[in-house]
Design a protein around this nucleic acid. Structure first.
Lengths: 114, 114
DNA sequence: GTTTATAATCGTCTTATTGCGATATGTTTA
DNA sequence: TAAACATATCGCAATAAGACGATTATAAAC
């Protein structure tokens, strides 16, 4: 049963991270705890959309939520999530550099041909 | 433009990983290169479904594909993807252990109450 | 206590994802 | 060249995800 939950949690975490708006939210919150009223102006999305995205990150235990009067403050729960994102970037960068390398090789062979 | 592609790639990679069947496929392929005919019997999914999942992982540059006669061989392109998965597990485990801890505390206070 | 501010939730629409059977493609074997 | 095999792709149904405006809930200010 724990076996099942951990695999569910993995999917929940990965699913929460596989959306561009949510990754931007995390980057924004890398600067520290922010209330929704500070987050909203930084994003070109409706209030309801941002609220839903924040909740998805919260449900995945990636964000922490603290209610302060009429505000709600969100913050990164575990900064290790940035290690994860950096690892993804590292994988993505390798792909791009392979492409770039392939591009250079192709270009070279084209130049040789003319 | 590279800025845009890298963020697209991140999402593509994370999206490819956020599916239980595909994570299982990766774990299966951790044992090394396998042809589809070896993969199929290990999964309770139709051939077309597995083929599509494999293609999603391939498109995300997570798997490598090699055609060998009438077989197609798939393998892990970059084992760093397992570091990524292990990091996700680490985050998920922390959540579960927090829950377990909360459970113990709750249990204790219940026992004290009777 | 009525108004204002902040954020969550609801209902709906649109689009994407997953899964499957059926079909197509390409390769080997007979 | 036909039959058998291995895999990819197509087309469709069911479900999930994303976006948004409207509504609701709660706290603060007046």
């Amino acid at each position: 049963m724990t076996q099942k939950s951990i695999s569910d949690l993995r999917i929940k975490i990965l699913g929460a991270l596989s959306d561009p708006t949510r990754l931007e939210l995390l980057e924004f919150l890398a600067g520290g705890e922010r209330c929704v009223c500070e987050i909203l102006p930084a994003f070109q999305r409706s209030q309801s959309t941002i609220s839903k995205h924040l909740n998805i990150l919260y449900e995945a235990d990636i964000l922490e939520r603290k209610i302060d009067g009429k505000r709600t403050l969100y913050s990164i729960k575990d900064p290790q999530v940035f290690d994860l994102i950096r690892l993804v970037d590292s994988l993505a960068l390798k792909q791009i550099s392979h492409l770039a390398e392939a591009g250079r090789i192709l270009e070279k062979s084209l130049n040789r041909g003319r």
